[in-house]
């Protein structure tokens, strides 16, 4: 298990957004977290990445506790994410957005920037090449000089994934990556995420597109009102009474 979460809890005032959730993510799998609106999925992601630290519980990443680390330290550990309400650097070019994703891997600082010494030039070249590679992979190469804000919605989502990948993560957290995408784009995303798994990445994904989830997820965890109500593969989850109840209401006898 690459990521092990035990008894994670987060309260906002009287509302328990994440309630004693346990989750284990196996290496090189696609693990989905689903649930009705307001089930606490995004808060759960924010807890893992420390953007909103959890109140209690443990998050163990490769045998090391990380729940008290800062977001930037967690990024340095190899956990990258995208955001439900896209958080691109709007007034930055597509290319610079992705290059910024490589921030962790380089050390050039004020002196390097001013003197443009050998290390600075090597780092700039490397990060630019990696960024271009990723931009080509998501099909935005000809738009690399556009401001991120000028891209259509679907392409903004792709750019966010490219930016997250630029930090060369081991675990990628995707928060509703298919939202706002059309069928063709969702199909493309399906292939793309599978390819990431083949490349050795572990993916934790929140998604409302049931077809996408059932198609790619190796394992599915269902949250409702902050509580884990079911876990298993696609078939097991689909036939779970509590899941059906959470989504559709109680079956009449």
């Amino acid at each position: 298990m690459i990521l092990e979460i035990t008894k994670l809890e987060k309260k906002f005032g009287g509302l328990t957004a994440v309630n004693a959730v346990d989750l284990s993510v196996k290496e090189e799998t696609i693990h989905a977290v689903i649930g009705p609106n307001g089930a606490g999925k995004t808060t759960f992601f924010n807890n893992i990445t420390s953007i909103i630290p959890a109140d209690s519980g443990r998050i163990i990443w490769k045998g090391e506790r990380i729940e008290r680390l800062s977001p930037q330290a967690i990024s340095a550990k190899g956990i990258a994410r995208t955001f439900q309400n896209i958080r691109l650097f709007a007034y930055m070019s597509v290319l610079d957005n992705v290059i910024t994703g490589t921030h962790n891997h380089y050390k050039s600082f004020v002196w390097g920037a001013i003197s443009r010494n050998a290390r600075y030039r090597r780092e700039e070249k490397e990060s630019r090449e990696l960024a271009m590679e990723l931009i080509e992979k998501v099909g935005l190469a000809d738009k690399r000089h556009e401001y991120a804000r000028n891209l259509p919605y679907g392409e903004q989502r792709k750019l966010e994934i490219a930016r997250a990948l630029a930090s060369k993560p081991k675990l990628l957290l995707l928060d509703e990556p298919a939202a706002g995408m059309n069928n063709a784009e969702t199909e493309e995303l399906d292939q793309f995420i599978r390819a990431l798994r083949e490349d050795g990445l572990t993916v934790l994904i929140i998604e409302h597109d049931v077809r996408l989830i059932m198609s790619i997820a190796d394992r599915i965890t269902v949250l409702d009102y902050g509580v884990k109500i079911a876990e298993g593969n696609a078939v097991e989850v689909q036939n779970d009474d509590r899941v059906i109840e959470a989504y559709l209401g109680k079956r009449r006898a």
Binding site: T49, I51, S70, P71, Q72, I74, S75, A76, A80, R81, F83, R87, L88, F89, A90, Y91, M92, D96, I99, T100, G101, H103, N104, Y106, S108, F109, V110, G112, A113, E123, E124, S127, R163, S167
Partner: peptide, 20 residues
């Protein structure tokens, strides 16, 4: 790299911090 970090912070602090 320094300038990009500054602009990233201007654009979105939360995204910047999750980029490390």
């Amino acid at each position: 790299r320094v300038g990009r970090a500054w602009v990233a912070i201007r654009e979105d602090e939360i995204a910047a911090s999750s980029m490390g």
